[in-house]
């Protein structure tokens, strides 16, 4: 799980079992690169560059981090491993946007008018429907009343997939079948959520590549149509990114943000070998916080992202 090696103890234990991925994690690689050094030299910076780029952090973000370190070193006179560790931690911390105050960390809904509406968007195959299933489970566990909207009416059997999740978790799924107008489904779902006094309504949408303008317009429309029912919805527009995605994630964030004002990110499939480093740059550039991370196949395998835990785990020994 590389970069994001920061799970609560019992979950971590489960994930670590047999995987030994920490060997290649960013943490241990940086640690190794740091070990025994008393100066920041070109060798170290080259190594740091390779570590960051190989984690999909991207050239620009990598160079930014390296430049800042060079600056700080020439100013503060680097002395030892511990200081360099602190320095790196500070620089990466500075890149990640502060978590929003109203989004608490344990699947607690903020104090807004109910239902709290979450619209989930992303390219094909990143894990939107699975993430929604897991979210529904987590929010339901917290005692919230959840309604799901099956607005992916395009991909073969997508409605069925969400319905299976609905049954599994025990939450209602509002659907109008395949090929229905997704905006109408979203409208209906929010309306049902209002009528049923639900706390949270999560809308699934079809995966779409961000360079297809007509499909992106459709997303804007889905959002607009929901707003006819009540102001301020959707409260959360969640862009789902696949941890294995490379630099294209920037374009995804750009286009989806333009179409729907994305205000939260979910990073999925972190239980694989992909490091998901691109999220650092994306999060920084668009000032969009990472909200959830997917770490496995089971219903429980979705966690709320915590920046400070993340940094701690990245740099603790």
């Amino acid at each position: 799980m590389g970069l994001f090696n920061f799970f609560s103890k019992e979950k971590k234990a489960k994930l670590d079992q047999g995987l030994e991925k920490t060997k290649t994690s960013l943490l241990s690689r940086i640690g190794k690169a740091l070990a025994g050094r008393s100066t920041v030299d070109d060798d170290f910076l080259d190594e740091l560059e390779e570590i960051l780029v190989s984690s999909d952090v991207g050239i620009n973000t990598t160079l930014k981090i390296i430049e800042r370190i060079q600056d700080r070193v020439s100013r503060d006179k680097y002395l030892g491993e511990a200081e360099l560790n602190t320095l790196l931690r500070e620089e990466i911390t500075a890149l990640l946007p502060e978590p929003e105050a109203h989004l608490s960390q344990d699947f607690n809904l903020p104090e807004v008018k109910r239902p709290y509406v979450i619209m989930v968007v992303g390219v094909n195959g990143v894990g939107k429907t699975t993430t929604i299933g897991k979210m529904a489970y987590q929010y339901k566990q917290k005692g919230y009343k959840v309604v799901l909207g099956a607005a992916d009416t395009f991909r073969a059997a997508a409605v069925d997939q969400l319905k299976i999740w609905g049954t599994r978790v025990g939450v209602p799924v509002i659907e109008k079948g395949m090929n229905a107008d997704p905006a109408a489904v979203a409208f209906e779902a929010v309306k049902e959520a209002i009528d049923q006094n639900a706390d949270v309504c999560i809308i699934d949408t079809a995966g779409r590549l961000h360079n297809k303008v007509n499909l992106m317009n459709e997303l804007s429309k889905i959002k607009r149509v929901m707003q006819k029912l009540t102001d301020g919805v959707p409260h959360e527009v969640l862009l789902v990114l696949d941890a294995s995605t490379g630099q294209n994630a920037f374009e995804q964030a750009k286009q989806f943000t333009a179409a729907t004002e994305v205000n939260a990110l979910a990073l999925t499939k972190l239980d694989g070998t992909a490091k998901g480093g691109v999220v650092i740059g994306v999060s920084e550039q668009f000032k969009t916080p990472v909200r959830y991370i997917g770490v496995g196949e089971a219903m429980e395998d979705l966690q709320v992202f915590n920046k400070h835990e993340f940094i701690d785990s990245l740099f603790s020994n």
Binding site: V53, S54, S55, D56, V123, D242, A243, S244, T245, G246, Q247, N248, A249, G272, T273, A274, K275, V278
Partner: peptide, 9 residues
């Protein structure tokens, strides 16, 4: 769209 991990996978 896979990034650096393509090689490992």
């Amino acid at each position: 769209m896979t990034g650096q991990d393509a090689v490992n996978t």
